[in-house]
Write a protein that binds this DNA or RNA. Structure first.
Ligand code: FES
Ligand code: FES
Lengths: 162, 162
DNA sequence: GCAATAAAAGACAAATTTATCTTTAATTAA
DNA sequence: TTAATTAAAGATAAATTTGTCTTTTATTGC
């Protein structure tokens, strides 16, 4: 007899990894401040994007190594994005640096490679979605994202956490 | 000085979890066989979809508990999907059972909830993509996927692994 | 030079996901 | 009833991801 309908999600899975989510939110926060000429420290970043500070610090290291964010040590130091860079940096660069490209290039159901010649059953439908995702990630600049936050249209954390 | 450009993906992340990928591939394989009136055992499943057998067995337990796949113990037992069920079962049921719904409902950059009233910077772009993903998962039946494999148009594993 | 500041680097630790192995329960056939 | 078969359940282990803590390095101001 089959009684049990709808257990739920043994894995709680987001589109991107936590590391990537933090990386994106952090980059946007830093960009909004850089546009006002303000460098921000890791403490502020973690507070403003509501993320664990030491882990966020690790992610910042990845982003700086990839040349996405610039960092300065010492008094008055912190993280920033130059006015030129903020216009050219795309969301996809952050995703690539942290989660890699499989999300928009790999086979949706895990075949070792996605290929037109040897497609999996979801290949053609998935291709469309991945394509849209890829397009969006490639087109969206850090500046776009940051300006929306600066204007107060968009937010980097949920409201009132008391 | 900033020398280092483009490190790569500290996380190798697919769209779905391994568990979910195996679950989808397994379900499709079982469905193709059920349509020929054949029950398949866990051994065949794992072999045909190129997945680790014991782990795949665990996933089958989840799918049977959710009423997606039917199982029979004992001699001549194995896994199957009824001719009626295969027409009504949607891809989304498998994803929900294993990865949950955050991938097509949750905020793309990890805000605790995705909300129109308090949107994150990628909200409106992401909504479109998630919507398309949701639509695809909701519409695609196991039968569609299985029939493509049966006809030989689609595949459940990569070629020649010697 | 010296103290203060702040990120980088490295070593750990916890949690989650993936994978394996053993025992149990159900079913069939003889 | 017994033996064979096959999935379910449970315990455990490995790998990956997430999170923390300490030490080092670079920079600034004095
Ligand atoms: S082969 Fe699976 S998505 Fe292309
Ligand atoms: S709030 Fe982030 S996607 Fe809707």
């Amino acid at each position: 007899m089959q009684t049990c309908i709808s257990l739920y999600g043994i894995n709680k899975r987001d589109m991107f990894s936590k590391a990537c989510e933090y990386g994106i939110r952090a980059s946007i926060f830093i960009a909004t401040n850089s546009s006002k000429g303000i460098r921000v420290g890791i403490k502020d970043v973690a507070k403003e994007i509501d993320s664990p500070e030491p882990f966020t610090a690790k992610i910042m290291q990845i982003l700086t190594k990839n040349g996405i964010i610039h960092s300065a040590k010492g008094v008055g130091g912190g993280f920033e994005v130059s006015n030129e860079a903020v216009k050219t940096i795309k969301l996809i660069q952050i995703v690539d640096a942290i989660d890699g490209d499989k999300i928009y290039r790999g086979c949706g159901i895990g075949l070792k490679e996605c290929s037109e010649a040897h497609p999996c059953p979801v290949h053609f439908e998935f291709k469309k979605i991945r394509g849209l995702l890829h397009e969006m990630l490639s087109k969206t600049t850090l500046e776009q994202l940051a300006s929306g936050v600066k204007k107060g249209d968009f937010f980097l954390k949920t409201l009132n956490l008391e």
